[in-house]
Amino acid sequence: MKKRKLTLTQILVGIVGVIIAILFTLPMLWFVFAPFNSSVSLSVAIPERFTLENFVVAFSSEVAMRGLLVNSVIIGGGTMVGTAIIAAMAAYGISRGNLPGRQIFTTVLILFSSVVTGTASMIPIFLLIFSLGLIDTHLGVILVMIGGLLPAAIFIVIDFVDGVPRSYEEAAMISGAGPLTLFRDITFPLIRPGLMVVGIWALVNAWGSFLTPFILLRDPLKVPASVAFYVFYDPEGTPNIKLVAAYAVLYTIPVVLLYLLVNWRYGFSFFGGIKR
């Protein structure tokens, strides 16, 4: 192979690239090292004295632990399951129903997704949930999260349902399968990668959402981890960096683990279409 000479521009582009990469990596490094450091500052440093004490203290806060282990799990799991199930049913109907004007409909779906849970709609949402009597309940939070995620979720899943040839379902129908059997045996397994994507994406969104649970929940023992961070701030609003850092690690781990698990077990796919 002929050796290629690097031009000056290529070298410059490389250098700029490295600088940008470092800028993005630094916070991650801080995030990895800080919780184990007994004297944390905002600068990145490899801990001189390694310690787990930050975690012990973080664990001792009831609000923080309930938030992480109970409330976030309920809200995240509920949103994940609810979004996936409703998106599957809606996408199936839209894909198979041959709606007239389907293209426009799906485009409008996408537009709506950014509106529903946006800051601007918080007051109507609050009033709606209030009049439903769901203030300070997990169900209220879950419903609002699902509502916000559904449009985009449906949009994604439609593509997967479109990718399942009708003749698979027809073959099953002739074999004697009713609508539910058919969905369980044929359609669901074939669109599962899409539902995985949507489910995990919904979970990550619910897990990380702050505004919705912050506004809809009152009881500190009901707030999810994303809101529970506030217990590590003193009344003046200054964070206890050590504890925030430790809690942040705990907060991240479940989502990463779930992602890895699902990816290993089923695999993700971001568009429809079936290997035959």
Binding site: P165, S167, Y168, E170, A171, A172, I174, D185, I186, L190, I274, K275, R276
Partner: peptide
């Protein structure tokens, strides 16, 4: 029925 395009479940 045997389908013209087989329609085997992948």
């Amino acid at each position: 029925m045997v389908f013209q395009d087989y329609a085997l479940y992948p």
